[in-house]
Computed example of a mutant assay.
Amino acid sequence: NVTLQLASIEQISFDEFIHSIPRVTLIGLFHSALADKTPMKGIQMFEVNPQLCMRLVELLCGGTDIESGKVAASDDAIDDKNFTDIELAILREVLQELGKVFQNSWKDIVQMETALDDLDTNPQLLQTMSPNEPVVLTTFTMQIGDMSTFLNICIPYVFFEGISDKLSFRNWFDSSQKLSKDDERELQRGLNNVEVSFETRLGSAQMEMADFLHLEVGDVIKLDRKTSAPLDTYVNGIPFYQAKPGKKDGNLAVELLDKLEGDPEDE
């Protein structure tokens, strides 16, 4: 289990970003394109520090002991080591999954496809943009077991130039936009997997605590409903139907009779 929280968003220069991360770290280089295959400007970078990389490799290779002291001897030893080809192959899959999350996070604003281009372990040799180019640095805090660390996403300013007109709140929540058939199908597809509780109550009774404490097997409790009266059926605790109890194929069952009047917003 991983806990991820947004720590900060700030605008800095690319050079400041490079000097704020370890001298040996893992950087995933991504590019994005719009749904019509128009490439978006700039290279997006995901920086995963060596401590987190080694923890992920340990867990993905079957390790179950997530005590930080047993994953690596020391942080300095990790900082000075180079990643092996096997470790990079494992971590490439992790970075690809992060790219999918990045792509999906933009879907309400713009449809895009994000792909991993390459992995780099020496930020000092990166020449993807000029040192003074402004970038947006988004930092997340990540908790894995007893280990707390950071994950950085670096996005150059030119990335936003082509979609700046879509970044206003007015475009996100424009009530004048009509719901398309695709939106309706997507909403229905999402709701189909939502679990709801469905229960039918035979009735209820009230009694004093003294009577409750003296209950024994075989005692009869009188409910507030006649045996011939329809039963209330609840969906997520809200009464929706009246039903008649019975059996079907040897199992207890209820037959829905009428729909109860309720708040239309609850339906």
Rank of each mutant, 00 (worst) to 15 (best):
S8P: 00
S8V: 01
I9T: 13
E10I: 08
E10H: 13
Q11H: 06
F14K: 08
D15K: 11
E16R: 10
F17V: 04
I18P: 04
I18D: 14
H19K: 15
H19L: 07
H19Y: 12
T25Y: 04
L26E: 03
L29W: 05
L29C: 03
L29S: 02
L29Y: 01
H31I: 13
H31L: 14
H31V: 13
A35R: 14
D36I: 14
D36K: 14
D36C: 05
D36V: 11
K37R: 14
M40I: 02
M40D: 07
K41M: 10
I43E: 09
I43W: 08
Q44W: 04
Q44T: 09
F46N: 15
V48F: 11
V48D: 00
Q51L: 03
C53T: 06
C53Y: 15
M54N: 09
R55Q: 10
L56A: 01
L56K: 05
L56T: 00
L56E: 05
V57M: 02
E58C: 06
L59F: 12
L60E: 07
L60Q: 10
C61R: 07
C61Y: 11
G62W: 02
T64S: 08
T64L: 04
D65A: 01
D65C: 00
D65R: 05
E67C: 06
E67F: 04
S68L: 02
G69E: 06
K70M: 12
K70W: 02
V71L: 03
A72N: 02
A72E: 06
A73D: 10
D75P: 12
D76N: 04
D79E: 14
N82Y: 08
F83P: 08
